[in-house]
Amino acid sequence: MKIGVLALQGDFSEHITMLKKLGVETVEVRLPKHLAGLNGLIIPGGESTTIGKLAVAYELMEPLREFGKEHAIWGTCAGAIFLSKDIGRDQPLLGLMDIKVQRNAFGRQVDSFETDLEIDELYKATGTEHPYHAVFIRAPIIESVSGSTKILSALADGRIVAAQQGRLLATSFHPELTGDTRFHEYFISLAS
């Protein structure tokens, strides 16, 4: 099992630490050639505008879209924005997932928050039942999903914060900033 982490900008090393804990081989992806031989890819948190511009500059857009047709990809926060089809403004997007995303949906940094989520899919996959503690940082929300995309988790007020479409996964929060490896385990099962 070899998982790549897009390492253009953001907290890619935090994802690598989580994957290593789970005994997975990891690769930092900065150029198209780094995608060869991977079973899956994580797009980390960071600034989606920065990540998008660097992906365009180093001709990663098409290779990433091709990769996503065959393999699992998981985007956290900026990564979820980058995977989406529509964010209502002009910046480079992979457009792989049928989700509409709103950036900075909760406000500025002083509004960033931590909370517990109930995620049945995750409980089933990992044989656990305790809540998932989620860290949201200048986080986006998933405004709507369409096509075959299913909602994995929403806040009490109904706002969607995690979605899945086949082997593609989007979360507005940052599992890589917690000690809880369940989301990474779930993603590895999608990549297998």
Partner: peptide
Amino acid sequence: TWTEKKGLAQMLKGG
């Protein structure tokens, strides 16, 4: 929270 404060800086890494 401390996690939130540190966390935003973690999102800026490599930038």
